[in-house]
Computed example of a mutant assay.
Amino acid sequence: MLGKTAGGLYWMFRGLERAEHTARLIDAGFRIALTRSTDPASDWRSVIATSAQQAAFEAKYDAYTSRTVSNFLLRDLDNPSSVLSVIKAARDNARMVRTALTSEVWVAVNETWMVLTEMLKDSLTEAELPLILDTIRQQSGLVRGALYGTMLRNDVYNFCRLGTFIERADSTARLIDVKYHALLPSHASVGSRLDNVQWEMILRSVSAHRSFRHAVEDDFNAANIAEFLILDERFPRSLAFCAQRINENLTLLHKAYGDDSACLTAAQAFQARIDGNTISDIFEQGLHEYVSQSIIDLAAIGMQIEQQYRFWR
């Protein structure tokens, strides 16, 4: 396979996953803001900070509100990471690699682009947010279902899934960080009812509330929820689950191409770092520090994949 084709597949699914993550990130900020109405600007600022776009946002907007943050992250074409921007890029990549995709996957991607382009053509209001965020998640699921149900399990499929799981692991880490990094009003709130309610909202934002209830018998609290989102291999958005899938897909590509295994070695080290810790170890290191290092490691793995498989050729 040409490196350019591999890169198109990889980035198409990174973009689709990023669109869903952005919707979930906004949903987390929206829900958490409802639990602490005294300072909603701080809650929305944390969403922008966690998306690593604070400078770009502040260059364009004067205030952190649900309207300004939502419009910036969902429909602003000057923001290359907005949903509208990444969906357009995903559709362009899908068109470029169309011969590698089944007709079902292409139709699902193209439909996603058309639906969201129509929904996001005008400035958004807070009342419109729930429907728009739900639609983004539903369209993302439609594309995943088409991929899973119709594609051969070959190198095309592996590059698609690599894009999905690297982006998803990064997304989960950032969602944990949006809670820990800036949302608590003071250190005295750690372990309080407010703290636990906000952690529960994070669960809901990743559609994990019921799964957590099935998997964990203990209460909703920071340690139990962080353990579930980081270490539980059964949950498809946990760091542990994503690390396993990244290693599986890279192993299959390594066997297919017989190339050097630099990115596979890095991915194995990332998984070992997850497998080698308990939640007590992570909290002792510092949850924010652990999550931040995970984000750095995932970025490095992504760059190594691009270099090893020559996405520019």
Score class of each variant (00 low, 15 high):
D39E: 12
T68S: 15
R144Y: 14
L250C: 11
W44M: 04
I202P: 02
I132N: 07
Q271Y: 01
R18Y: 01
T50K: 07
R91V: 03
D297A: 01
N249T: 08
K255M: 09
G276N: 07
Q308K: 13
F311Q: 07
A56W: 01
V47K: 03
F220G: 02
S238Y: 03
C242F: 04
G141A: 14
I136T: 06
Q293N: 05
S70Y: 01
L287V: 06
A33G: 15
T68H: 15
V291M: 14
L264G: 06
A94N: 02
A215E: 11
D281Y: 05
R174W: 08
D219A: 12
S70N: 10
E227I: 00
M96R: 10
T278H: 02
L73T: 00
L175E: 03
Q307T: 13
S238Q: 07
W113I: 00
Q308N: 10
L264Y: 08
A59G: 15
L183S: 00
L74G: 02
V190I: 15
R213T: 06
H214G: 05
D62C: 05
R273L: 05
L250S: 03
A108L: 11
I295R: 08
A90T: 03
S103D: 11
Y309N: 05
W199E: 07
A146M: 13
I166W: 03
G3Y: 04
D297G: 01
I282D: 00
A127N: 11
M96K: 04
I279V: 12
I87C: 14
R174A: 03
L129R: 09
A28P: 04
E217G: 07
N110D: 07
C160T: 09
M303I: 00
